[in-house]
Nucleic acid binder design. Structure first.
Lengths: 347, 347
DNA sequence: TCCCGGCCAGAAAAGGATTACTATCGGCCC
DNA sequence: GGGCCGATAGTAATCCTTTTCTGGCCGGGA
């Protein structure tokens, strides 16, 4: 591969001049020299070495997105949003699936630090795990000191996200919508307690109940993993609990839980929504494809990613942009309806 | 951020010695010096600069995956497979959504070249677009000459993939399975003609018909985009064609097409499978979640990604691994059954 | 005529790590 | 005792680009 030196030699100028031309510096270069350099660069198929450049600038045009799992439609959508904005700005996007494993996450962040990534966007919620967060925070501090931008899209140990959605308000709105349909016994699939975002959503559930003057009943809250399997398990847990037969609606902290519940309910012969109504949260692309199609709360995921990059970009430019909070929207599809026969029905 | 020089100074040794310790070279270093260097590195929170290292080695521990769209479950699954294998080997994964736009793809490859990515894995099928492929090929040639590994997981302009599946055999097997259920009039949603993989799958459809001694009928083949919208459109196209009312099964070149068809058929009031049977291809995670759940051909997508990285890794190690072909498997779910009332039924 | 400012070109240093090469020292063989 | 070898340590070159600094040259003002 040709280097700037070879381009300079072919063009009959110094490396400095060649560099000024190809990197579009505003240092003045005569038109003649400029043309010769451009010709030489084309001739040699010159592509600048981003590593050499990065070594000097202590930053390489790469933004990383830390997700829990790239195959989760929630995260792939966010990553796509980051990528749309980032590629316009000439950045590449690294995606890291941490599987919610703090050790993996830490080793990713270390690698990103060693690569001098310009920015790190944390798409997933942080975990409440002090020991693990310590190492991550050490790396992040070093990166920040070095000029990198760190952006969170979900609540985390360090506080609120720079760009995010109002999770509590979103869930509360769904609870209110369910109440509007006539439901009074509404269960909640809460996901894991260690996840900050899950806590916010649980708080939203409580707030929604409060707004409807319905008493909070701990027995109606199922805490499981944040995925399909967790949703199925939650249904079983709920049904095994005393006093849940009269539940007519299940509100979920995310779509995957709701989808898992849907599958399990179908297997159990509980109709949806004529037995129980089921609502999700996130509006991942699959939600509209299931049968019955899933009522949920739409999060502008791609937009979230786009704004996440934009926030990072402005930070890199030395600005101090204000935090952003995006609006959510309740989307009622076929999985919710008037109160039915209840969770206790079916086989 | 501390450099190796500072570590060396604190340890009271030369940079060379410090480097030999932290990079685990097999050059002999006394136990005493080694311990002092390790202590100093820990003390200074030293993390080697991957750019400096990469500048020297002309390669950075990054593997890129070129996909059409990371939000397509097919691709996110493949990317995840690459990542699983790559992160074990200490690599980061860059994903690039080209949107099947050759210009975008070319600019991504250029960026990867400038970054000295160690490997590029093309997850999606190539497009038959000579002009666009020329620039890409120029960059790839330079990267290969520089020691990078290029791996394709789908057929492309340059020929067969290094790791891939037998698309034709997979589709043919599904056609045979449909024939086994009693179908004789089987339509095919082919996707775009310009996509190499779509051509292979169409060939598989013809081969399957041939095996069942059914004449190929061009009117039963719908060529559209490779996504949900394409599937819906294909149903409309088919229904607008003379002589398709008797079609009892729709075989699709990928799951997204089949899912789009499913949605459209539901809207049209054509039952599945009692009106027509619908079959997909790929077995993306959504396929099992729809209603009716989608019969399809399972591709080991994650495994494909894993092996793609492994192939790249072995190439980087100087080996010349043999191409791999992975087996596919017909998965019959609820969207297929005995021949029904036909595509012409419904509203 | 002399000096100064503007324009442009180039030399050289810096950024961080690796490695080929050189150097030192103790010990061993003849 | 001289020469040589093995084990370590260090020096310096190298990867490629950017940028600061120096300097040449030309035109214009005093």
């Amino acid at each position: 591969m040709a280097s700037i030196t070879e381009v300079a030699r072919l063009a009959g100028v110094s490396a400095a001049t060649a560099s000024r031309v190809v990197s579009e510096s505003d240092y003045p270069v005569s038109a003649a020299a400029r043309a010769r350099v451009l010709d030489a660069a084309r001739e040699l198929d010159y592509v600048p070495n981003a590593l050499a450049r990065g070594l000097l600038k202590s930053r390489v045009p790469v933004v990383a997105v830390i997700v829990h799992d790239i195959t989760d439609p929630y995260f792939s959508e966010v990553v796509r949003g980051v990528e749309d904005a980032a590629s316009n700005a000439g950045y590449l996007v690294i995606s890291c699936s941490s599987e919610r494993d703090p050790v993996r996450e830490a080793s990713y962040v270390r690698l990103l630090r060693s690569m001098r990534a310009a920015a790190v966007v944390f798409a997933g919620s942080g975990l409440d795990d002090a020991a693990a967060n310590a190492e991550i925070e050490r790396h992040l501090a070093a990166m920040r000191a070095d000029g990198a931008a760190i952006v969170h899209l979900s609540p985390h140990a360090g506080g609120d996200p720079e760009v995010g959605v109002d999770n509590a308000a979103g869930i509360a709105a769904m609870v209110v919508a369910l109440v509007g349909l006539g439901h009074r016994r509404i269960a909640f699939l809460a996901g894991p307690e260690t996840l900050f975002v899950a806590r916010e959503r649980l708080a939203g559930y409580r707030r929604g109940l409060e707004a409807a003057a319905i008493a909070y009943d701990e027995r109606l809250v199922a805490r499981t993993g944040f995925d399909l399997a967790g949703g199925a398990l939650a249904v079983d847990l709920l049904r095994a609990t005393e006093g849940t037969g009269s539940v007519t609606a299940i509100c979920s902290a995310n779509d995957l839980l709701a989808l898992g519940a849907l599958q399990r309910l179908a297997a159990l012969g509980v109709g949806v929504p004529d037995g129980v109504s089921v609502a999700g949260f996130d509006d991942i692309s699959t939600a509209a494809l299931t049968a019955p199609s899933l009522s949920t709360v739409r999060l502008p995921l791609r937009e979230l990613g786009r704004l996440g990059f934009e926030q990072a970009d402005r930070r890199l430019a030395g600005e101090e942009p204000a935090p952003r909070r995006l609006a959510t929207e309740v989307v009622l599809r076929a999985s919710t309806g008037m109160p039915g026969t209840g969770l206790g029905s079916g086989r």
